[in-house]
Amino acid sequence: MHTEKIYTEYKKFNAKKVFYILIFIIILGIIALGALLHGPSSLGFKNSFAALFKETGIARAIVWELRLPRIIMAILTGCGLSIAGTVFQAILKNPLASPYTLGIASGAGFGAVLAIVFGGSFYSEYLIAGSSFFFAMLSSTIILSIAKLKDPSPETMILAGIAIMFLFSSLSSFFQYIGTMEQVQEIVFWFFGSLSKTGWKEIGIVSVMIFVPMPFLIKSSWQLNLLATGDESARALGVNTTKLRMQGMVFASLITSACICFTGVIGFVGLVSPHIGRMLVGSDHRFLIPTSALIGTILVLVADTFGRVLWAPQVIPIGIVTSFIGVPFFFYLLIRRTRGYW
């Protein structure tokens, strides 16, 4: 009798996970539609909906050129940061890891600071994005080289990451110190994170950088599962742990850098979504990666919509709102949890 039961229980367990993923897709759809129809402009709910199908006019421009790109960017960054966070937690075997653990955000921040302070006549949105992407990738390259030189253990990587973080933060502070008032203001604004300057071109670039590495990370899901049980076990079960860890680092850093180079640092999402996901669907990365991607997407989208609507016409930067919404929710889960972990 037991045999059948174990088998069906496992199947049910997995069916439940697929169910969660479907539910989240539906929720995301509803929220995205809601975000599209709400905004600081005087455009009402009905008019916004009608504007979706119009050929010309201001209403159409607001919906198609301002709101929609913003919503898509929110979805992309939420998804990218959460996937990167999940992968970093798996390969570093550390539940505290996030897309920013390895100093990638401070690298990106320093890049932005450099562009803002020394951009001069070349100064543009793209210069900031390019520079921050370059420095974000530079920090992860430095960590990879140190890991390769010494040993590719999670401890080495995390320690190297923390060192890099301090290096770039102090450099950023130094240039803020010597920068002008306007420059400093712009730097502060960049560090809050914002989706307000998003256009279709940026969306195109970010999508490519997120969706090209993604299949690889999803393909390694099973191997990432094994990594959580320890390197020795994973190796004895046939995983090349060094290769997996290095590749995971490269792809997750690439996704993170792509997300933050246009939007600035959006905190907390990449740390918390994998945990919420794990609580709901467990640690099987085949289900965890899509689930935490959807959770992150929903979190960023809700935060951005709140930020736009709450104090309209003032817009609160997204980086501030994500933590405001995310932290109480995270505390709630933390207190409510029954098992040792999730």
């Binding site: 229980e9 367990f13 550390n94 539940p95 959580a228 794990r278 467990g282 640690s283 098992r339 999730w342």
Partner: peptide
Amino acid sequence: SKFPITVFE
């Protein structure tokens, strides 16, 4: 195991 897994898994 750093992250929760069931015995079956």
